[in-house]
Nucleic acid binder design. Structure first.
Length: 583
RNA sequence: CGGGGCGUGGCUCAGCCUGGUAGAGCGCAGCGUUCGGGACGCUGAGGCCGGCGGUUCAAAUCCGCCCGCCCCGACCA
């Protein structure tokens, strides 16, 4: 490809709307272009990267028995009603009507279609297991798209679905997908770790997320250096040490004017925050939720969502609290009614905590669960914090930010039962299939790669996903012999099967080198009057500071060797990964 | 949806407070000179100042409403 004809106008300045590296660089390099919030065009360079990623996806999915297919993006509401997600999912699901006023959705994922499809086409245990996948557009009407290509509304997803005769067979297969996922990310040059994750709106029994560690990430992970534990903070547990509060003492009211926060309360009463109980209020499917954790901890909304069997939570408004007779800042689980009280297990085991009196300006000493109030649910709803004791080994955990680039779920029979994907066993009896689903976001993966692999000058593409392997610069174009040599090299590289972006523009050397760095092809070749004086070509890796001169006649061979070495170093990282529950 | 910020040639921004001829740099087009790390000179094109309404003799500028975009919070590939 000639740079002079490529649709690629690089930007000198950082775009105003971008403030994270992947977004800045992808826009400056003309890989993506925003159309609306969370909706982007992939320009030629971005499309080439996506195609390279998709090639890796296809190879790895095919290697574990996947068959590619293509399903519709626009889908009738009926199948979503059958699965229940029409009702469970809120505004993230974009709904529309056709001319006949039929309800339609833009698919945010394809469990419904694939399940009905498999149910239609698979009837016998002899046809199972089956693994199907597609690489196709998804639409999620995200409340807040973010960070360039990391959080989009319209995006491309490799979504795969497997169907099995039994949980055992799914359990056997699941680690194969787990391994394939590691292979995919490593081949794309991205380091990831796997973590246990929440099953969320997908339902199911087990899930892993594949995480690329970066401060730009939206997820928080809980990691233990001592034993290797890793989990999404949404579900991470930690060891809770009960502080001995002594035998339950009589309740005692204490005046605490103007102490609306736990910090103020602890300060005023001269007690540690861990001697208090903290209340937080949410609204779930069943109405107002009164959540209680120890004062030094935070409520984990994912855990609380699961504990209350809600599909979604939102913080309660002041008005809703007043209506329920709750005094914000002085709220107490004592004497409240008509709300669901969820108490963290640690609070339930603690004695003589200080809690609100549900009366403005007053708190209570010696509040004890079981004696003074009853919870509807007692379960872990506290969020793991930096330095919390690891649930497995007791060592301190640390929190890290990460991008979720992929996930795998054991769905179980939820969709198969709802959408009647059944098979007959050897005895002729019908059973719902046991399913798994497996997703990877293509644009997000591209963004995560840039996030993980760039410097102050620009992107540094791992060779397997680079839009071109070589950036060929020619200088002194007015010198016919130089131009001729460059043209010949361009042709020879192409003939050798190397993908080349040939910067044949009439631009100054500075412009070309700067663009070469920004666009980030792994290998740069430069032909100029100077190099030709020695019958040579300059060769430089994007990751290196220095360049080397190689004989013009051997330039193609050297380029091939360099690309081969880059590829080999990536291949060396594709190794067997131990499948571990809990890590 | 709650909170904060921003909308002025393709891009980055100034001008707005204190109303009166719409600006700079980059980019783009032409000519010439340059040619190893975002070169230089000359010439030129390009703007309903996000939209609607209001105030005023006069609005990019003041006021109101709306729309869009970004950031922080709750969700997900």
């Amino acid at each position: 490809m000639r740079r002079s004809t490529l649709l690629c106008e690089t930007l000198r300045d950082d775009p105003a709307e971008a403030d994270v590296p992947n977004h800045i660089l992808l826009v400056r390099g003309c890989f993506i272009r925003q159309l609306a919030s969370g909706i982007y065009s992939l320009l030629p360079l971005g499309t080439r990267v996506a195609a390279k990623i998709e090639q890796v996806l296809r190879e790895e999915m095919d290697a574990i028995g996947g068959q590619e297919l293509t399903m519709p993006v626009v889908q009738p509401a009926e199948i979503w009603q059958q699965s229940g997600r029409w009702y469970d999912i809120g505004d993230d699901l974009l709904r529309l009507k056709d001319r006949a006023e039929h309800d339609l959705v833009l698919a945010m994922t394809h469990e419904e279609v694939i399940t009905s499809l498999i149910g239609y086409n698979v009837h016998s245990y002899r046809q199972l297991p089956v693994m199907l996948y597609q690489i196709q557009t998804k639409f999620r009407d995200e409340p807040r798209p973010r960070a360039g290509a990391i959080r989009l509304r319209e995006f491309t997803m490799k979504d795969a679905y497997s169907a099995h005769i039994s949980q055992e067979d799914l359990d056997r297969y699941y680690p194969e997908v787990y391994q394939a996922y590691f292979n995919i990310f490593r081949r794309c040059g991205l380091d990831v770790i796997s973590v246990d994750s929440d099953v969320g709106m997908m339902g199911g029994t087990m899930a892993h997320e594949f995480m690329s560690l970066t401060p730009v990430g939206e997820d928080t992970l809980v990691l233990c250096d001592a034993c290797g534990l890793s989990a999404n903070r949404q579900i991470a547990t930690f060891r809770k040490d009960v502080i001995d509060g002594g035998e339950p003492q009589p309740l005692a009211e204490v005046a605490t004017p103007d102490t609306k926060t736990i910090a103020e309360l602890a300060d005023l009463l001269d007690i540690p925050e861990s001697s208090t109980a903290k209340a937080a209020f949410f609204v779930g499917d069943a109405g107002l939720i009164f959540a209680v954790v120890r004062g030094d901890m935070e409520v984990n909304e994912t855990k609380l969502t699961n504990a209350t069997k809600s599909t979604a939570l939102r913080p309660a408004t002041e008005a809703e609290l007043h209506e329920a007779g709750i005094v914000p800042g002085y709220a107490s689980p004592l004497g409240v009614s008509g709300v669901q009280v969820v108490v963290d297990d640690l609070v339930a085991q603690s004695t003589n905590l200080v809690a609100g009196a549900n009366k403005a300006g007053y708190h209570l000493y010696n509040v004890n669960h079981g004696r003074d109030y009853e919870a509807d649910v007692v379960v872990d709803i506290a969020s793991a914090y930096d330095g919390a004791p690891c649930p497995d080994c007791g060592g301190p955990v640390r929190l890290e930010r990460a991008i979720e680039v992929g996930n795998i779920f054991k769905l179980g029979t939820k969709y198969a039962a709802a959408l009647k994907a059944q098979y007959r066993d050897e005895a002729g009896d019908q059973h719902p299939m046991v399913m798994g689903c497996y997703g990877i976001g293509v644009e997000r993966l591209m963004a995560a790669i840039v996030e993980a692999s760039h410097d102050e000058r620009g992107m540094i593409w791992p060779v397997a996903v680079a839009p071109f392997q070589v950036y060929l610069v020619v200088l002194n174009q007015n010198d016919e012999s130089v131009m001729q040599a460059a043209e010949q090299l361009y042709a020879d590289l192409g003939a050798a099967g190397i993908t080349v972006l040939f910067d044949d523009r009439n631009e100054s050397p500075g412009v070309k080198f700067t663009d070469a760095d920004l666009l980030g092809m792994p290998l740069r070749l430069t032909v100029s009057r100077r190099t030709l004086k020695n019958e040579s070509v300059e060769l430089k890796l994007r990751t290196d500071k220095e360049f080397t001169l190689v004989p013009l006649a051997e330039a193609v061979a050297h380029a091939q060797a360099q690309i081969g070495a880059l590829q080999a170093s990536i291949d060396a990282r594709v190794v067997a990964e131990e499948f571990a529950v809990g890590g």
